Measured scan of single mutants.
Amino acid sequence: VKKMAKAIMADPNKADEVYKKWADKGYTLTQMSNFLKSKTAGKYDRVYNGYVIHLD
């Protein structure tokens, strides 16, 4: 998940494709939050927020 999150950060155009894969795998927002937690607070906030919007 972190590898794909980094791919989104490097190229935001990949976001919809990645979010669809995550949704197809049934990842919940709680799971995504836990996967994307980082020592650098807020590092993956943009990715998480994008997934929230995708699921909505």
Rank of each mutant, 00 (worst) to 15 (best):
N49T: 10
V52H: 07
A7F: 07
L29H: 06
P12D: 05
K2C: 14
D56S: 15
T30V: 13
A5M: 04
V18D: 01
D24Y: 08
P12V: 07
L29K: 11
N13Y: 11
M4T: 05
K21L: 15
G26T: 02
A15V: 05
K37T: 10
V47A: 05
I8L: 07
A23E: 08
Y51N: 00
S38T: 09
A10Y: 09
S38N: 06
I53V: 13
D11I: 05
G26Q: 05
A23D: 05
T30S: 13
K14R: 12
K43S: 05
V52Y: 06
M9R: 06
K2E: 06
M4F: 05
D24W: 08
D45G: 05
G50M: 08
K37C: 13
T30H: 12
Q31Y: 04
L36Y: 02
W22T: 01
L29A: 12
Y51S: 00
D11A: 06
D45M: 07
T40R: 10
K3S: 11
Y27H: 03
F35K: 02
T30N: 13
Q31E: 11
A7I: 13
R46I: 14
N34D: 13
A15S: 11
A41T: 12
G42V: 04
Y51R: 00
Y19K: 00
T30F: 14
K21S: 14
P12N: 06
D16N: 12
D11S: 07
Y27I: 09
K3P: 04
A15D: 03
K25C: 15
A7Q: 12
Y27D: 00
M4W: 09
A41M: 11
I53H: 13
G26K: 06
A23L: 07
M32T: 00
L55E: 01
K25T: 11
M32F: 04
K39Y: 09
K14M: 14
D24G: 10
M4N: 06
A41Y: 10
Y27K: 00
V47G: 01
V1P: 06
V52N: 03
I53S: 11
A15G: 06
E17F: 10
P12R: 06
V18N: 03
I8P: 03
K3Q: 12
D11V: 05
V18W: 03
A15E: 04
A23P: 00
G42W: 05
K3D: 11
I53M: 13
N13L: 12
T28G: 05
K3N: 10
K2R: 12
L29M: 07
V47R: 00
S33K: 15
K3H: 10
T28K: 02
L55G: 01
A10I: 11
L29N: 04
T28V: 01
M9F: 07
V1R: 04
W22E: 00
V52A: 14
K6T: 06
K43F: 11
V18S: 03
V47Q: 02
A7V: 11
L36G: 03
D24F: 09
L55T: 04
K6I: 10
K39L: 08
R46Q: 15
I53A: 15
V47C: 03
R46E: 15
M4H: 06
A5S: 03
V47K: 01
Q31W: 06
K6E: 13
A23F: 08
K21H: 14
V1E: 02
Y48H: 03
K6W: 10
D24R: 11
K39G: 12
E17V: 09
V18G: 03
A7K: 11
D56Y: 14
K39E: 13
D56T: 15
E17A: 12
K25V: 11
H54G: 02
P12G: 07
D24C: 12
S33Y: 14
K14V: 14
E17P: 04
Y19A: 00
Y48W: 06
A41F: 10
T40H: 14
M32N: 02
K20M: 09
K39A: 11
T28N: 07
T30P: 09
M9I: 12
D45R: 08
K6H: 10
L55W: 06
K20P: 03
K43D: 05
F35C: 08
Y27F: 10
I53N: 13
Y19L: 01
N34Q: 13
H54L: 05
G26E: 06
D16C: 13
S33C: 13
K21D: 13
P12Y: 09
A7N: 06
G26D: 02
G26P: 04
D24V: 08
K3I: 08
D45C: 09
M32K: 00
A15F: 04
Y44C: 05
D16S: 12
M32A: 01
V1H: 03
D45W: 10
V52L: 10
V52F: 06
S38M: 06
K21E: 14
L29R: 09
K25Y: 12
A23H: 09
H54R: 03
D16E: 14
Y27R: 00
T28Q: 03
N49P: 02
K21G: 10
L36D: 02
A15I: 04
I8T: 03
Y27G: 00
R46A: 15
M9P: 01
K39S: 13
S33E: 11
N49F: 14
V18A: 06
K20N: 08
M32P: 00
I53Y: 09
V1I: 14
P12F: 10
T40I: 11
T30C: 13
K14E: 06
H54K: 02
Y27E: 00
K20W: 05
K20R: 13
S38L: 06
A7L: 14
M9N: 06
I8N: 02
D45L: 09
S38W: 06
D16Q: 14
M32I: 15
S33V: 10
A41H: 11
A7Y: 09
A5V: 04
T28A: 02
I53R: 14
Y51M: 02
T28H: 03
K39V: 09
S33W: 15
N34V: 13
A7G: 05
Y48S: 00
A23C: 11
W22L: 01
L36W: 04
M9E: 04
K43P: 05
A15L: 05
A41R: 11
A41E: 13
